[in-house]
Each structure stands twice: as structure tokens, then as C-alpha cells.
Design a protein around this nucleic acid. Structure first.
Lengths: 254, 254
DNA sequence: AATATCCGATTGTACGGACATTATTCTTAC
DNA sequence: GTAAGAATAATGTCCGTACAATCGGATATT
């Protein structure tokens, strides 16, 4: 278990005159090496004393940077052994891209979807409960069956309120994520989203589309998306095949 | 905005010969003052230099304690102003134990639980897959049926690796959360936790304890808790009655 | 009276050194 | 050969100092 040599790493020199604290400049630089693949999971960093010399800072400053990277989950340290690069560099807790496409890609599957129904309408009493605060608001409705490779995975019913993003339906959401379109085309910022996960037994509609037996347990995920104005912009109800999909979430420490 | 005087606080002296780091002894002492009400939200702590003198430690050690209390959410510091006691002492985003109790309370129900089985053992091949990286590690096993009012809600199987927290079983987790005990008694910091949610059909064991019919869809939640050292410390498998419980999570954007 | 300036209090950043603790590796004794 | 012990290497704890940055209030100026 030999540590990386200083010479093997393209450390970027710190700027002692910058108003940015030295420890933070070092944090950013090491994060760069880890995201760029110059430092890989399981790799052992050079000892802090060597790093401090290489960066031209005191040991205390170097330890400050390493300690903060430890709290943030980038690295783990063990007395007497060394400093190790952690398995998965922390990702933001907030995925703004289409998580279904991403998860399928992670599992080595190709995601695609079939539109079952779509309509431009308004919010009325038959719309999901989460949207009832905006009766009469124009909305875009989309029912899709989404596949991983050739297997149906999820049946999704999406309602998007188009009051602040007219003609949203013109975009191709096979290519772009909703969040990306809202941000670049309408300058709308997603501030918060909530997921509520439950389990239900498959009924006749699910049986047909997801090709499961009646009563098979399905994951029911309700997603609400809110803008920084506080208004809800999207609500989606999704029925996942529980045998082919897991909902997972990571929380990183206070 | 005048700060508390040292004389007004019943600081407990630290033990310089203890193997417990001084900064951690101070952390625990200040937490005691805050939970006991001797220091209230909005209160301003004495300046770090006075505190360090009062505790008989160097400024660096004092800052270390205050810095850790800051990360944990107990206090907030502002250059030029002072150190303030935060509004709500850190809440369980994290605490397993506590989160069930809290959720039941939110729904106006009284939570209690029945221990079905508990044992001190070691990780072996029959242990959950998530723990297989630590074969032979000592662990504490706890199977519980948890109720909201008189209704069974969830069947939980918890494995806690006690390698770095021996005799963890002596604490009463009806009163204290796992996170709080790890933090104050063992100076261990929870860095990350992951939840994986799936759905399964009730089998015979579930039928009996949760009092549901065979095949009823249940929410299967697997929780893994990791320390800042990168090591997993706990894994819990929970079977929730989906008709009485929803898993929900909110993500707030950058 | 309003504005600008200074000053003291407090936290933040950064340097230095000393010794302790932990894990690994190497040596030695049997 | 194996096991105990010694040396080594790494992180952890703790102390000291110096100066910078920030904030609030007091003072001085207009």
C-alpha cells in the first residue's frame, strides 16, 4: 500500500496574496485531482508533511484542508496508515438532470420511453391533490411508459404547470431534462423537490403496461417540484416495478 | 448583545490525564450546558480566549471544540461578533431511532416498540450484504416491532458494528438517539447515510407481526450509516406497512 | 444631526514546535 | 520459522505566537 508520490501529481501552486484562504485553495485543488481521475478511489495521498511542503504551507494549514475534505466525505484518514481517497466523490444532494435516464445508464441499460398520452389542459378537480392550489392554471399533461433496454420499468403521469413557461410542450424531453429547459429557456430555478414513496399492489392498468401479475408490489413515487418563488411547477406520479428499480437517497452530514 | 460571563456558567473542569481528547471533553461539557438550559438559544458565549483560560487549555484546543460544535449545528460563529447558541440544537436528520419516534409524533401518534430479539455477535455470511466487507467484526443485533399508538407499523432488523464503540448495548436507545450516543460517548461522527427503498409482498413472518394479509405490499427500506472514517457502522432493514407509512424526502437546491 | 473615522473586541488564518498514538515493517531472539 | 520487540512512518493532540478581517460602538468632523 504505497502512497502516491508528489511528483506524480500535478499540484497547482497556491496564491499567498489571494483573499481566498490557503486551506480552501488546497481543498479545491485536491478535489480537482480526484474528479479528474488523477487520484482514484483507494489511492493513498502523500503524507501531510510532504503535501504541506509541496504546497508551500505549514502543516497546520495542510491539516485544515485535509480535515475539511474528510468532513465532506472526499477522503478518509487513519492514524499510522495514511490518507485514502473515498469510494464515491460526493455528488450534490440535488440532481437536476433526469434521474431515470441516469440511473438506467448506471445500471448499463439504455433508457427510452413511449408516450401513452399527452395533452394541454388546465388544472381541475381530477388533477392530483398536490396541484389543487392552482385551479384553472394551464398545464401540460404527459403519460409515459419508460423502459430500461426493452423492459418496462415505470409508468409515469406528469403534470407541469405552464403558467410561467408557455409552450413548454415544444421541447423534446427525450433529449433534454425538464430542469435544464426551465433554467435555460425560461430562467426558472428549481429550489426544492419532495419525493413521497409508498407501495401499492398492481391493478389492471399496471398489469397491462408493466407486464406484471395482478397484486405484484409496485413502488409508488410522488414527486413535487417547487420554484424559488415557492410555487409548485410539476407533480409526477410514478409506478415502478419494484423488482427492477430501487429508490435511493444519500444524506451527507450536517 | 452582551456575552455570558464565565462566572455565570458552571463549566466542568477537564481531565488532562484522560485518554479522551481535551477538545472532546469540552464539546460534551458545552453540550451539557446547552441541553440543560444554562445556555439558551441566542445566547452569546464568552470569547474563545476567555473560555480557553477557564478550561485551562490553549486557544487552539478551544477553537477545535468550538469548530466541531459549529459543524454539528450547536453554535454559529461570526467574526467580530461572537459565538451564538443556535435555535434548535441539532435535530435528527440522521437518527434512525429518533426519526421513527418523531414521525409518529408528527402524526399525533404515540410511538413505542417491542424488542423481538437482540444479541451481541459478529458479522458472518448470514449478515446483510452491506456489512460483508467487515467479516468477523463485533456487532450488536436488534430486532424490533415498532408501533404507532397500538398499531404495528414497522418491523426492523438492525445491525450495529461495535468495533469502534464497545459496549454500545448498555445505552438506552429509547431515550437517546444512536447519533447522539456515538457523538458524545465515542467521539464518532456520522458523515453520510443512504436509504434504499423498495417494495415487497408480505410473507409469513410479516403477516404475523404486522398483522397483514399475505401478499400485502410492504415498503422495504434499507438504511446504511457511515462514519467520517468511511466505515459503515450500522445497517438496518425495515419493513413498513405501506398503508400506514410513507417514506418522504425533501431536497433543497443549491 | 448626519457622516466619516478610529478603536477595541472577537473570530479567522497561518506559522511554528513538541510529543502521543497507531499501524506497519524490520530485526532479533528463541 | 515464529513470535516478541524495536524502529519507522504516518496521523492525532496540544501548545505557543502573530497578524488579518470583521463588526459594533465611540469619537471626531462637517
Amino acid at each position: 500500500m504505497v502512497s502516491k508520490k508528489i511528483a506524480e501529481l500535478s499540484l497547482q501552486q497556491v496564491n499567498h496574496n489571494s483573499p481566498v484562504p490557503l486551506y480552501h485553495q488546497i481543498e479545491v485543488d485536491l478535489q480537482r485531482l480526484m474528479t479528474a481521475g488523477e487520484l482514484l478511489p483507494q489511492d493513498v495521498l502523500p503524507p501531510e508533511i510532504e503535501l504541506s511542503r509541496a504546497y508551500g504551507v505549514g502543516r497546520h494549514t495542510m491539516r485544515m484542508a485535509l480535515s475539511r475534505l474528510t468532513s465532506a466525505g472526499w477522503i478518509a484518514r487513519q492514524a499510522g496508515r495514511g490518507t485514502f481517497v473515498r469510494e464515491r466523490p460526493p455528488r450534490p444532494a440535488f440532481y437536476l438532470d433526469d434521474s431515470f435516464t441516469r440511473q438506467m445508464a448506471n445500471m448499463g441499460m439504455v433508457a427510452h420511453s413511449r408516450v401513452l398520452d399527452s395533452a394541454v389542459s388546465v388544472i381541475d378537480a381530477r388533477s392530483p391533490a398536490a396541484l389543487q392550489e392552482h385551479p384553472g392554471a394551464p398545464c401540460f399533461y404527459l403519460a409515459r411508459l419508460r423502459y430500461g433496454d426493452a423492459m418496462p420499468i415505470v409508468l409515469q403521469y406528469a403534470h407541469i404547470i405552464t403558467e410561467r413557461c408557455p409552450h413548454l410542450e415544444q421541447f423534446d424531453f427525450g433529449q433534454r431534462s425538464l430542469y435544464e429547459v426551465l433554467s435555460t429557456e425560461y430562467a426558472l430555478v428549481v429550489q426544492r423537490l419532495t419525493h413521497t414513496v409508498s407501495a401499492v399492489a398492481a391493478d389492471r392498468v399496471h398489469m397491462e403496461h408493466l407486464r406484471v401479475r395482478r397484486g405484484t408490489p409496485l413502488l409508488l413515487v410522488k414527486t413535487s417540484v417547487f420554484l424559488d418563488s415557492g410555487d409548485i411547477i410539476e407533480h409526477t406520479t410514478s409506478y415502478y416495478r419494484a423488482d427492477r428499480y430501487e429508490y435511493s437517497v444519500t444524506r451527507t452530514g450536517a
